[in-house]
Design a protein around this nucleic acid. Structure first.
Length: 491
DNA sequence: AAAAAAG
């Protein structure tokens, strides 16, 4: 076990670490902090929840010169919430050193942000807003000595790579670049190395990609039975905090609504909500005012919410990397966690792919019956009731209890109390918007060269016959064809 | 095909 105080860190940093309750390094920190301090470019890969932020944050803060004005350290993150979280952690680490970190993301006030940029040595940004600042020339980047791509494989993925290239072009060439993620597919790592200066690669050795303190399960289930299965599992597991991942924004809304109807404290989060709503939902979740967060992949990466005990993949994720990150929202900092993935029969291949990447077997779980779910709720109620006796002062209630016992059977009283601690779930049918099965995507089409351009691709698609609920035909398709052109003009 | 990210 290596301690932070053996790494040659400055006093203010050590003091901050001490204040945060950190004494020993995690493996990724032990290996990358010295490299970072020596000025090397680094590609760091380590499991979720093992302290990557401090691994790059500490060397970055150590290198800040308070005499210099302008941004000196730049971190780029894939979501706004993650940018905020990383900036918070860097601020804690930099507190005693007087090094300040600013989250910079879309949806926040521009004028205020521009003013704040002058007072912060480190910026943690999402790509869109950062580029906005670069183009308006409202950010000073000539002094950047350290740049970090957090969730690097995601940042170098198709949706982000062009933005990232543009951003890196705006930075001094003489600088240090650090890349961190839990996952790093080969193709992406190759791209990464072209952007770096003979990087040192650090992979914390552990054969599995997921941490061992997460128990992973799946249930094989038809689409239309998913929702009932989810509520039954929730009743049996009684998670402290759970995240339910859905494949689309619409599904997230629908599942969150349906959970509320059944009496769960749940809310949805996805990229179509206002930033204010996104933040308030997340805050509620962290404070335990809601127990279930229903989310798109906006919440898949990086978010560190310590008490998440369960992750449900209501829809199995598109790629195995996404799976690793999603389930990594639980089992953080050494705690126990559980993940349950819903797999339709035709998605079994996808599960095999996941097992191959993570080198871990995912165990099958039977879908519980309605009765078992009721029993589950009751067991939880019993626990709650008995814990109440141990944990709380219930003396003020004892006179009422005595009065009641004069009138009624003790068994009836307790039964009634237990019933009050459970919720009756009406399993009425829930209509959810359909999801496109994953199996249709790898099978064809995705060969680099020709993306199906202008309506021409239609003929070919028609052979697919995978789904008859997607009318694209020229016939009964009132004025919808323009969607095609818009969708295809991506590049 | 989805999601994220500027306004």
């Amino acid at each position: 076990m290596t301690k932070f105080n053996s790494l040659g860190l400055s006093d203010p940093i050590l003091k901050a670490l001490d204040h945060m309750g950190f004494e020993e390094t995690t493996p990724i920190q032990e290996q990358t902090i010295p490299l970072g301090m020596e000025g090397h470019d680094v590609i760091g890969q380590a499991q979720t929840g093992t302290g990557k932020t401090a691994a790059f944050g500490i060397p970055m803060i150590e290198k800040v010169d308070k005499q210099v004005r302008g941004v000196q350290g730049l971190v780029i993150a894939p979501t706004r919430e993650l940018a905020i979280q990383v900036a918070e952690e860097l601020n804690r680490l930099g507190k005693n050193a007087g090094v300040r970190s600013l989250p910079v993301y879309g949806g926040s006030n521009m004028e205020r942000q521009i003013r704040a940029l002058k007072n912060n040595e480190i910026v943690v940004a999402t790509p869109g807003r950062l580029l906005d600042h670069i183009r308006r020339k409202t950010i000073k980047l000539e002094q950047v000595h350290t740049s970090v791509l957090d969730e690097a494989d995601e940042m170098l993925n198709m949706g982000f790579i062009e933005d990232i290239r543009d951003i890196l072009k705006a930075l001094p060439t003489e600088r240090q670049t650090l890349l961190f993620s839990a996952t790093m597919p080969k193709e992406i790592r190759d791209i990464a190395t072209t952007l770096m200066n003979t990087p040192k690669e650090v992979k914390t050795k552990s054969k599995e990609m997921t941490v061992s303190n997460i128990d992973q399960y799946y249930v094989e289930i038809a689409e239309k039975h998913k929702f009932d299965a989810l509520t039954r599992l929730l009743d049996i597991h009684a998670p402290d905090l759970a995240i339910v991942f859905g494949r689309t924004k619409r599904r997230v809304d629908e599942v969150a609504d349906a959970l509320q109807v059944r009496g769960f404290r749940a809310e949805g989060i996805h990229g179509d909500l206002t930033q204010g709503k996104r933040m308030s939902v997340l805050k509620k979740f962290k404070e335990g005012r809601i127990e279930i967060l229903v989310a798109t992949d906006v919440a898949a990466r990086g978010l560190d919410i310590s008490d998440v005990t369960h992750v449900y993949n209501f829809d199995i994720p598109q790629d195995p990397e996404s799976y690793v990150h999603r389930i990594g929202r639980t089992g953080r900092a050494g705690r126990k966690g559980e993940s349950i993935s819903f797999v339709t029969p035709r998605e079994k291949d996808q599960l095999n792919l996941i097992e191959k990447l993570t080198k871990k077997k995912v165990d099958k779980l039977r879908v519980p019956s309605y009765k078992e779910a009721q029993k589950g709720q009751q067991d939880i109620a019993v626990t709650k009731l008995t814990e109440k006796m141990d944990a709380d002062d219930i003396n003020d209630y004892k006179q009422s209890a005595r009065d009641l016992m004069d009138q009624y059977e003790a068994q009836d009283l307790v039964a009634a109390a237990l019933k009050m601690l459970t919720v009756e779930r009406q399993e009425t049918p829930v209509r959810l918007s359909s999801v496109q099965p994953i199996s249709t995507r790898n099978a064809k089409g995705a060969k680099g060269g020709r993306s199906n351009r202008g309506g021409g691709g239609q003929g070919r698609n028609s052979q697919r016959g995978n789904s008859n609920k997607r009318p694209y035909n020229k016939g009964g398709n009132k004025g919808r064809s323009k969607n095609f052109n818009q969708n295809n003009k991506g590049k």
